[in-house]
């Protein structure tokens, strides 16, 4: 393997200044579970890795009117956080099935989003919660909806000299229920063939779906919101007919590819199946306010 230097700044300012100084010769590293693998596969070959692990505060979960999950928070922390499990269970569920315990102990939520894999575990759940990415550079800070953060397979909207500082999560409306479903080839330590997040807000008296958020992963160049499917659900009682219609619509909203994990046809079919299953599962969880 090519040699590289490893710099570990102690502040965000220092990290941004190193990023400016080294430009294309540098690559950021958080948990390294994508970066080290990509380096070994020669998909990247930086002269310098700039580690974000020494920057205080980036690994914190905070609530200040809005929930903020620092980019360096690990999936293990998310999976085990009482707060996240209670307030954002779809995200906790997604983090808990990413890789293995060893991977989750170091892999971060920021790294998962920045790698921008179409199948990234946490993307669908963050899309249904309408999360925003909090970005910082030497020129200041900006917030970007997660939908516009994903640009293409392996491509995100970060400027070269920008760091993802954290994810901002608005609380979902009361009376919301949801589910996260991952289809892999095996039960654990496998990337998704298709993944689906469902978040439904139901009128507690009538059971009518007031608001629906559905997101799909691994079925298009980027993780995406299935907005036509959401429209079918909103304003309706979620009976078998509507649920089936939603599943059919979700199939039309994807544009999957064929790869070693599955064919395009299989992915499309399973996206529909998982959307239906996700809705049904959410309804069973009716008593649980997300």
């Amino acid at each position: 393997m090519k040699k590289f230097d490893y710099l570990k700044p102690n502040t965000l300012e220092e990290a941004l200044s190193l990023l400016n100084q080294y430009g294309d010769r540098a690559k950021m590293i958080a948990g390294g579970t994508d970066a080290i693998v990509m380096n070994r596969q020669k998909k990247i070959s930086p002269d310098v890795f700039i580690s974000l692990r020494g920057i205080p505060g980036l690994d914190q979960i905070e609530f200040n009117g809005i929930f903020k999950i620092g980019a360096l928070v690990t999936h293990r922390t998310i999976e085990q956080s009482e707060l996240i499990r209670k307030r954002f269970p779809i995200l906790a569920g997604a983090s808990s099935v990413l890789g293995s315990v060893q991977v989750r102990n170091v892999a971060t939520i920021g790294g998962n989003l920045c790698t921008a894999s179409p199948s990234a575990e946490t993307s669908p759940s963050l899309l249904v919660y309408e999360a925003e990415a909090h970005l910082v550079s030497q020129n200041g800070e900006r917030r970007l909806s997660l939908e516009s953060f994903f640009v293409g397979p392996g491509e995100n909207a970060l400027d070269k000299k920008e760091i993802l500082k954290g994810i901002l999560l608005p609380s979902p409306p009361p009376n919301s229920v949801g589910a996260y479903l991952k289809l892999g080839r095996r039960k654990s330590v496998d990337l998704s063939v298709v993944n689906v997040a469902v978040l439904l807000t139901l009128d507690p008296k009538t059971g009518i779906c007031e608001r629906a958020r559905i997101a799909l992963g691994a079925v298009a160049p980027t993780p995406l919101r299935a907005k036509e499917t959401e429209k079918i659900l909103e304003g309706n009682l979620l009976d078998d007919g509507i649920i089936r219609k939603a599943g059919d619509c979700a199939k039309q909203e994807c544009s999957p590819i064929t790869d070693i994990r599955g064919s395009a046809e299989y992915r499309r079919e399973m996206a529909g199946v998982l959307v239906e299953k996700g809705i049904r599962q959410s309804l069973v969880n009716h008593s649980r306010i997300v």
Binding site: I29, G32, T33, I36, V37, F49, S51, Q102, N105, V106
Partner: peptide, 8 residues
């Protein structure tokens, strides 16, 4: 528990 093969 951590995979030492990926740990800088």
């Amino acid at each position: 528990a951590v995979n030492s093969c990926l740990f800088p």
